[in-house]
Design a protein around this nucleic acid. Structure first.
Lengths: 157, 157
DNA sequence: ATAGTTGGTTCCCATTTGGAACTTATAGTC
DNA sequence: GACTATAAGTTCCAAATGGGAACCAACTAT
């Protein structure tokens, strides 16, 4: 199977990765959450080649994660902004960064610290069930198949 | 900059993606959390080519996310298990899948439903600050630079 | 008239991927 | 003893993708 066909999988994670799972794309999103909006700013910060950046921004826009809006006419110039849908990827970015902070930081510590404004403390993100408010561990989850795709997703349980 | 040099960046997210940010790798991890451990099982479920799978499993093992352990001698056979460090990526997987469930599911709905055993309800994961217990939105976060890398990460604020 | 800015596209070459066949070591069956 | 199956890869080739650099278009500023 080719990577470009994974958006045809029923799995929600596969479909998500069809939009944001490419090399460089999650780093583009990191910069979006840092307030970067313009092509050349992305390009300089990431060091990615221009045609790859162009392709990734197009895929994110087509996928509904970014919105390409004109910020001036004459000459026409566009910038890329997170949509509401895109902003919902924030937990993914935070957990990825936090995992790196914890396991991959060198002797100088994490390069960025995220403070929770409301309590003033460095953010320690956890997986929380919004229904009961409890913190969730992998073993706390029971997975059930949607009968429509019975047998196509789960191999074991 | 080449993608393979991304692990030299100070950014924790970039370092994380150097291990798990490749195409296919997050799908390998999805299967790990579903209990898949063996090479041929990964290969058949993902449809990825065998040498790419071999490469990704090696990178995950070198990165400390998976552990390659022999499950039999004669003939020697190995399987891949999540390490404690690997299991901490569970929130990333859950949030990615949940985002796909919400925004990319077709008419038949999400293919898998995750139930929280403790409360019995379908899991709705949220970003939570473990210090104060509040739910966290992107605007609730204030980012500060570690002075050691001053100016190298943040462009604006 | 010339240089600079912004947001790309085009070109070439090297690396990576997809697909399939092959390998190694062993167990089980005819 | 010969054949087949299993598991976990490795090797091969053609096609697709990526890195690096140059180029282009439509302006603005000096």
């Amino acid at each position: 199977m080719r990577w470009q066909d994974i958006d045809q999988q029923p799995c929600s994670l596969a479909r998500t990765l069809a939009i944001i799972g490419d090399n460089w794309t999650l780093l583009v999103l990191r910069d979006c959450f840092m307030g970067v909006r313009r092509f050349d700013d992305f390009q300089q910060r990431l060091g990615v080649t221009r045609h790859v950046l162009s392709d990734r921004l197009r895929k994110l826009t087509e996928g509904g994660v970014l919105d390409k809006v004109a910020y001036q006419e004459r000459p026409l110039r566009h910038e890329y902004r997170l949509t509401a849908m895109g902003k919902e990827l924030y937990p993914v970015i935070v957990h990825l960064a936090q995992w790196g902070d914890k396991h991959l930081a060198g002797e100088h510590g994490a390069p960025l610290i995220r403070y929770h404004r409301q309590c003033g403390e460095p953010l320690e993100a956890q997986l929380q069930c919004s229904h009961c408010g409890d913190t969730v561990k992998p073993t706390d989850i029971r997975v059930e198949e949607n009968p429509y795709w019975a047998g196509q997703i789960l191999v074991n349980s």
